[in-house]
Design a protein around this nucleic acid. Structure first.
Length: 429
RNA sequence: GGAGAGGUGGCCGAGCGGUUUAAGGCGCUCCCCUGCUAAGGGAGUAUGCCCUUUAACAGGGUAUCGAGGGUUCGAAUCCCUCCCUCUCCGCCA
């Protein structure tokens, strides 16, 4: 969430952010509501604290009188304290209520986009910054990955659907081996760039989901184990970013960089058609995630570095891709700036998102209560959090096998990968 | 899953209804003393929020002793619920 001080000082900027991100509720002025509720809260609080002060002094005095055995005088004060106490209790409830309502409204205000972010309301208004690599051309009709996967018995979609449901495939033989090699490869690349490997829990509690912003607004994204109030993670971002929840970090230790391989679980309600064909959109998929904790002043430099780190595996695998700068309307609630990496799917002739690289500035950190400070004397401030996929596997697998298909239907892996599998070729001899 | 013990400031650790505005120690910061080193002396050392004030500082108040609720004029201390940690037993990859 945003700082209430920031909203107090910059109401118009926040209103603009709300508008640009398309989170305006028709007609009602969320910023105005927050400010009003905030004033209400502060008034009640001041009032309450005055009474608490009075009550504390009375109690202290009573203690004194009791020690001196002046019971009668004490009794008078006790009677007065009792009435005071009732007023305190009422005011407490009111102040509490005002704070809850303020915070509820505050949670509905999105992060403010960075000034370099283009204003726009549809995906068409995202900026394509560059295209890297050459799209392949074939002297035969290239097949989509699901056809190739079936032909070489790499993935069992139907059986997955039988066992769990659509979007939960089995990977088999060289298909499974390929995925394992990719995970290993991506982690090694991240390690080379100074990201410390982490194996996080695959379930997170509600506090954690709130911390990174999956709750309350993206509730439908996650599966839920109601019985234990846990959520299978939709991305490693959730557990990894929550690692430092409620902690104060030493700024000398920043930046802190982590990478984590995890399966990810997403309900993906409402998707259909070509979007969900084959590996395009799954309910369970593997991903290597990069997460960074940064000083506020360096988070945008870190974002550029993170982008480069996310691009590296695509380059090395020789996959054509493009870099998009997301416009205000197409970026998430919690993000201040976001790039998407899209890989070229040669069999489907379309771009597939494989990474999303974002700076959340202090927005997540404030929810997480993750702070930092330069030395014990100075004030604390909220760290800046960033994350990016490096990378999500299924679409990379799809692009890989489509791009590397041969006229005879066999698949030839790029050398970088073949070093890690014990084969270079799938199919044929 | 069963039985027991326990969660106190950066760390250790006392406190078990009102001389606690959380003892004492360690660590850390600043100052003094000292030719250097060692030792010694003094002061300070949590976080959020509210108010006053400011260019910055600062001051006052309030809440927080795992979390939430209750008893009381007053709770770290008593009661209830939950969470977590440790020990022993059982089960298990």
């Amino acid at each position: 969430m945003l700082s209430i001080d920031f909203i107090r000082d910059n109401p118009e900027r926040v209103r603009k952010a709300l508008h640009d991100k398309g989170h305006e509720d028709a007609g009602d002025d969320l910023v105005g509501q927050v400010l009003t509720l905030d004033e209400e809260r502060r008034e009640k609080l001041t009032n309450l604290q005055d009474l608490q002060h009075e009550s504390n002094e009375a109690s202290e005095r009573i203690g004194e009188l009791m020690r001196q055995n002046k019971k009668d005088e004490a009794q008078d004060l006790i009677d007065r304290s009792k009435t005071l106490k009732q007023r305190i209790s009422t005011l407490e409830d009111e102040a509490d209520d005002a704070e809850k309502r303020r915070d509820a409204a505050l949670l509905r205000i999105p992060n403010v986009p960075h000034e370099s972010v283009p204003v726009g309301h549809s995906p068409d208004e995202n900026e394509t910054l560059r295209e890297e690599g050459e799209k392949p051309s074939f002297d035969f009709e290239p097949q989509p990955h699901w056809a190739l996967a079936e032909r070489h018995d790499l993935i069992a979609f139907e059986r997955g659907a039988k066992v769990t449901g659509a979007g939960f495939p089995f990977y088999l033989g060289k298909g499974a081996r390929l995925q394992r090699a990719l995970v290993d490869y991506f982690l090694d690349l991240a390690d080379e760039r100074g990201y410390r490997e982490m194996q996080p829990p695959l379930f997170a509690n509600a506090d954690s989901a709130r911390g990174t912003g999956q709750l309350p607004d993206k509730e439908d994204l996650m599966y839920e184990i109601g019985r234990d109030e846990l959520f299978p993670i939709p991305t490693a971002e959730v557990p990894v970013t929550n690692f430092f929840r409620d902690e104060i970090l030493d700024e000398d230790d920043l930046p802190l960089k982590f990478c984590a391989y995890t399966p990810c679980f997403r309900r993906e309600a409402g998707s259909y058609g070509k979007d969900v064909r084959g590996l395009n959109r799954l309910h369970q998929f593997d991903k290597v995630e990069l997460v960074r904790f940064e000083r506020p002043e360096s988070s945008y430099d870190a974002l550029e570095e993170l982008l480069a780190d996310a691009e590296r595996p695509l380059r090395q695998l020789g996959l054509p891709y493009r870099v998009l700068l997301m416009c205000t309307g197409d970026m998430g609630f919690t993000q201040a700036k976001k790039y998407d990496l899209e890989v070229w799917s040669a069999g489907q002739e379309r771009w597939l998102e494989v990474s999303s690289v974002s700076n959340f500035t202090s927005y997540q950190a404030r929810r997480l209560n993750a702070r930092c400070r330069s030395d014990p004397e100075s004030d604390t401030r909220f760290v800046h959090t960033l994350n990016g996929s490096g990378l999500a596997l299924p679409r990379v697998v799809a692009a890989l096998i489509e791009q590397n298909q041969q006229a005879d239907g066999t698949l030839v892996l790029p050398d970088a990968l073949a070093e890690r599998t014990d084969f270079k070729r799938i199919g044929g001899r």
